[in-house]
């Protein structure tokens, strides 16, 4: 729809920066740029991270669906396998708890003055991605292709209409968030 805009490299760099500023602002205001908040989420003592992610998904989902449905946006779904998601997810999880931040929130932590996030976290993530690139040629045809995920989306797997599943997710999501508030987590 906005192909000329999408192709304009300079403008895209500016848009990326502006959206990043908004993203960083929201992350910082929600307090998920703090190590303690992330660790307390992983210890299941405080559900701020889940609340932020849940609200983002519940707002994002219907909007992105409508944009895609009316041709204003494309699909951006990463294809993966059990080899990528399970192993990659678990390794990521170890880093998540040891660093106490994730690739987005670590940048936010740097912005609020956390020097450990800058000299430890960000540099560590850069090194980690580099190590992965080094071994990538040796695993790209092997373990990364182990059991490819058959269905691209949950609604294809369940065989129901996307719009119905979205409505269900919105209702279920609100109930879950309401239950979290109710139990005081």
């Amino acid at each position: 729809m906005y192909e000329n805009l999408h192709k304009n490299k300079t403008l895209q760099l500016i848009l990326g920066l502006l959206m990043g500023i908004g993203f960083g602002f929201f992350l910082q205001k929600s307090s998920v740029t703090n190590y303690d908040v992330i660790i307390n989420q992983l210890l299941l003592l405080d559900f701020t991270v889940i609340k932020v992610m849940g609200a983002a998904v519940l707002v994002g989902m219907p909007g992105i669906y409508l944009l895609q449905h009316y041709g204003y946006a494309g699909k951006h779904i990463t294809k993966g396998s059990i080899g990528t998601t399970v192993i990659g997810g678990l390794i990521f999880g170890v880093g998540f708890a040891v660093l106490g931040l994730c690739p987005g929130t670590v940048a936010g932590a740097v912005g609020q003055g956390s020097l450990d996030a800058l000299f430890g976290g960000m540099i560590g993530i850069i090194i980690g991605t580099g190590i992965f690139a080094t071994i990538y040629p040796r695993i790209s045809e092997g373990i990364l292709k182990y059991k490819p995920i058959k269905y691209e989306t949950l609604y294809e797997m369940l065989g129901i209409k996307q719009a119905y599943l979205i409505v269900f997710c919105l209702i279920a999501g609100v109930i879950v968030l309401y239950a979290l508030e109710y139990t005081g987590l």
């Binding site: 192993i87 987005g104 991605t129």
Partner: peptide, 21 residues
């Protein structure tokens, strides 16, 4: 420790094809 965590995270994020965002 943050550096070690970061290395795991960067490695795992690229292995899994994405991060928390």
């Amino acid at each position: 420790i943050a550096l070690i965590g970061g290395i795991f995270m960067g490695f795992g994020a690229r292995w899994g094809g994405g991060c928390t965002s």
